[in-house]
Every structure is written in C-alpha cells, then in structure tokens.
C-alpha cells in the first residue's frame, strides 16, 4: 500500500504540474479539493484520465468521483479494490 501511495503522489504531482511540491509534502489523508491542495474541477478531469490511462480503471458514474478523489488514500483504496 505504501508503495502505491507514493506512486500516486508522484503521478498527481506530474499530471497536475504541482511545481515545488514533493510527495512527502502531500498528506495522504488530507482533502485534495478545497482546503488541501486546492484542486478544482479541471484537476478532477485530469485525475479521471490518470486512473484510466495508468491503471485501466474507468469511473462509470461521475458521482463516485467525489468519494474516490477525496484523498490520496481513498484513490489508493479504490485502485486496490478494483485490482481484486
């Protein structure tokens, strides 16, 4: 799980072009949207594409996105669950 969390943080930094942010700076359990990293709806689209491209996971119902993209940990848990 730790390995996956680190990998997701690196990928999020890359696709969202989070300059001056290191994986260690991202709190695994902090909200990604709003207060935490301050991401917005375009970032959400970028994350949907990231999941599809890197992990082959398609989010069928957009409503699920809010729950899945809450934190780095919820993204990792969703990926783990889909792998099973």
């Amino acid at each position: 799980m730790e390995e996956l969390l680190l990998k997701i943080k690196e990928q999020v930094i890359d696709v969202l072009n989070l300059e001056d942010v290191e994986p260690a700076d991202i709190d695994t359990d902090a909200p990604l949207f709003g207060d935490g990293l301050g991401l917005d709806s375009i970032d959400a689209l970028e994350l949907i594409v990231l999941l599809e491209k890197q992990y082959g996971i398609k989010i069928e119902d957009p409503k699920d996105g809010k729950k899945i993209f809450q934190t780095i940990r919820t993204i990792a848990e969703f990926i783990e669950e889909k792998k099973k």
Partner: peptide, 13 residues
C-alpha cells in the same frame, strides 16, 4: 500518442 484515448483536458481547453 494515446491513439485518440485518455485525452487530458487542460491542453485542449
């Protein structure tokens, strides 16, 4: 590169 799939929105917008 992605064979018309996985198109990220930012560059397009």
């Amino acid at each position: 590169d992605n064979n018309e799939e996985f198109l990220a929105p930012t560059a397009f917008i």
